[in-house]
């Protein structure tokens, strides 16, 4: 376990629309009946976990990343910075050096290497973290400001925010961005276990394979949750068996569930099949917790 008895469970998927948010929100709510739970929405481009909860008293914390701030009086327009920046975030436009915050990766190279110290790093707002407390559930959601494209720095900032919380629930559920690229790798960093949500269709299987490949590359423990079980075929199930991958739970295909989800409603309390799947999953998580402890 990462630190002091906290179990971090990341929920991810190879592509969007497989039920990541459905699982994260319902599982968090389900577990929160009996123990303190933290749910963090790290899908910072499109966070929507909070739509499923109705909490008052939000604490909003602005989040910053460091970007270079051009000092015209010190600059000799030597152009070192523009040549150093691999992201074309620092460019020379006539007599001006212009920094494009949305492209900057905060690598500090232009700033540290500037012979005139004309590019000191300054904090720049990239988004915010909203923190809400409901009965037994702490809900944390980070959102990038409009026009910001880089998810990774905000994901890191949110992880830091969670680490610095005074009261830390022993179970932390991290709803990750979809896909298999850098934001996902950043979001599952530090997780004890990753649940990969998929659906039993050819698209679901194809995307699951990519997600599994990513988890293996970064050496993460993972298991699969099949959503909409019964909607498609057995290919996902068979593939998991052949690869020796645990299917931790199966959520049955149910039109009513899709309707409740579309209406942003938590469905587990009046959907027995979902409740049973969550129960199975809770047991699985408990076992893992004991294993890691």
């Amino acid at each position: 376990m990462t630190n002091s008895g906290i179990f971090k469970l990341a929920i991810a998927s190879g592509k969007g629309g497989t039920g990541k948010t459905l699982l994260s929100t319902n599982l968090a709510d389900y577990l929160a009946r009996k123990q303190a739970v933290l749910l963090a929405d790290l899908d910072v481009e499109e966070p929507n976990d909070a739509l499923f909860f109705h909490a008052e008293n939000k604490v909003i914390t602005p989040q910053y990343k460091m970007i270079p701030d051009w000092q015209s009086d010190r600059c000799t327009l030597c152009g070192d910075c523009t040549r150093q920046c691999k992201f074309h975030a620092v460019i020379r436009l006539g007599e001006f050096i212009t920094v494009f915050n949305e492209l900057c990766h905060s690598c500090y190279a232009c700033s540290d290497l500037c012979p005139e110290q004309a590019l000191p790093m300054k904090p720049y707002r990239m988004g915010e973290t909203r923190h809400q407390i409901l009965n037994g559930l702490q809900l944390i959601e980070s959102r990038l400001d409009v026009g910001q494209e880089q998810a990774v720095p905000l994901i890191h900032a949110t992880q830091k925010y969670i680490c610095e919380l005074e009261s830390k629930p022993a179970i932390q559920i991290l709803d990750c961005p979809p896909g298999t690229s850098c934001p996902v790798v950043a979001a599952v960093d530090g997780a004890d276990l990753v649940l990969l949500v998929t659906e039993p269709t050819p698209f679901g299987l194809n995307d699951l394979k990519l997600a599994v490949e990513t988890m293996r590359q970064i050496d993460k423990a993972f298991a699969v949750v099949i959503n909409r079980q019964g909607m498609g075929d057995d290919a996902v199930e068979n593939w998991c068996k052949s690869e020796n991958i645990t299917v931790a739970a199966r959520i049955p295909y149910d039109r009513q569930l899709a309707e409740q989800y579309a209406a942003a409603k938590l469905a587990w309390c009046d959907n027995t099949a979902l409740e049973e799947a969550l129960e199975e999953l809770a047991l699985f998580i408990q076992q893992k917790q004991v294993q890691y402890a």
Binding site: Q84, H105, Y108, A109, V185, Q217
Partner: peptide, 26 residues
């Protein structure tokens, strides 16, 4: 100088972690 935690000492020499490296060239 690496701000992405992408370089660490390996068995003998320093090594880069491709998935963390953002390619800034610092």
């Amino acid at each position: 100088v690496c701000h992405f935690d992408a370089i660490h000492q390996g068995f003998e020499k320093y090594e880069t972690q491709p998935l963390r490296c953002e390619g800034c060239g610092y």
